[in-house]
């Protein structure tokens, strides 16, 4: 009996070994066949287009005649393009609001974690706008933020004067940013709540016994212990700022008034719609890609540093 078992075991181990062996031809062929659809989709629709766009950005291609190499002309061109420069300034203003995008959900997450009455409900409700399409959010806020909309009605009731939030170039960008923040802060909130659940309760209790005040325990214990999560959320939020604003801009402000709400990703769309200078549009794309690559590098550094600890 024992012997039979051992024999089966040996057979099993041998079979397993056959699979661990990279030389197992049929397994290899099967594996390639199984990753092929995923790999092909990614290579054909993302990696090759990236290389192709990189090439375009150095040509004067107009969509019809043979492209000619023009060196950095497109890049010099965008550097002198007032619309592109405006889009960069808008982007910098957006990026400068990052502390609010992190701070607001972080404070709310800590409060929910501390057991605010109705915390579970708050979590579900705060996240709710994040599942709605930016088209839905944009279309509703386009009505709410009109001169005669709900928001101004509310302000007037509070004794303030009405503002044409979307029609005024000094307020349109902040309105856009506020709406996007309103509709997506639930995402970071979920990330922080998940992170907080790993903070040890004993540490908090010990701090309390030492007489630490609520805010002190937050600042000295809770926030440092989820620092990697905060850094992660900051990178993810920044990536979102660079690449997830299109839908809202498209519906809420269409980039206007003037260039006041054009961000680089929206400008790429406007440029590609003209169809006659893909080289120029590609140059803007490459700038956006460089920013994304920089963020990816930071993300990888954060992740590997955390792995070292």
């Amino acid at each position: 009996m024992t012997q039979t078992l051992t024999a089966t075991d040996a057979k099993r181990r041998k079979a397993a070994a056959a699979h661990a062996d990279p030389g197992s031809r049929s397994v290899e062929r099967f594996a390639y066949l199984f990753v092929l659809p995923a790999l092909a989709l990614v290579v054909v629709f993302r990696i090759i287009p990236l290389i192709w766009g990189f090439g375009y950005s150095f040509t004067n291609y107009d969509g019809m005649s043979t492209p000619r190499f023009v060196g950095l002309d497109n890049y010099v061109g965008i550097a002198h393009d007032p619309v592109f420069l405006d889009s960069l300034v808008n982007m910098l203003i957006l990026l400068a609001t990052l502390p609010i995008w992190i701070g607001l959900p972080l404070v709310l997450a800590i409060l929910i974690h501390q057991g605010v009455p109705g915390g579970k409900l708050f979590r579900a409700v705060y996240f709710f706008p994040a599942v709605l399409s930016s088209v839905i959010v944009g279309a509703i806020f386009n009505v709410l933020l009109r001169y005669d909309g709900s928001f101004n009605l509310f302000l007037k009731a509070m004794g303030f004067s009405a503002v044409d939030w979307l029609g005024n170039s000094s307020t349109a960008l902040f309105s856009l940013i506020a709406v996007q923040l309103w509709s997506t802060f639930g995402m970071s909130l979920l990330i922080f709540i998940a992170g907080l659940s790993t903070v040890s309760a004993e540490m908090l209790e010990a701090a309390k016994l030492d007489g630490a005040k609520l805010l002190q325990t937050w600042w000295h214990i809770v926030i440092p212990s989820i620092r990697p999560i905060i850094e992660f959320a900051a990178v993810v939020t920044t990536i979102g700022m660079l690449t997830s604003m299109f839908g809202l801009i498209y519906v809420l402000t269409a980039g206007g008034p003037g260039t006041s709400t054009i961000l680089p990703e929206f400008l790429i769309w406007l440029e590609q719609g003209k169809m006659n200078r893909p080289g120029y549009a590609s140059a803007i794309s490459m700038v956006l890609f460089l920013l994304m690559a920089g963020l990816a590098a930071i993300q990888i550094r954060i992740m590997s540093r955390n792995a070292d600890i």
Partner: peptide, 9 residues
């Protein structure tokens, strides 16, 4: 590589 980065190609 978000779609905006490769929009044209």
């Amino acid at each position: 590589i978000p779609v905006q980065v490769v929009l044209v190609p």
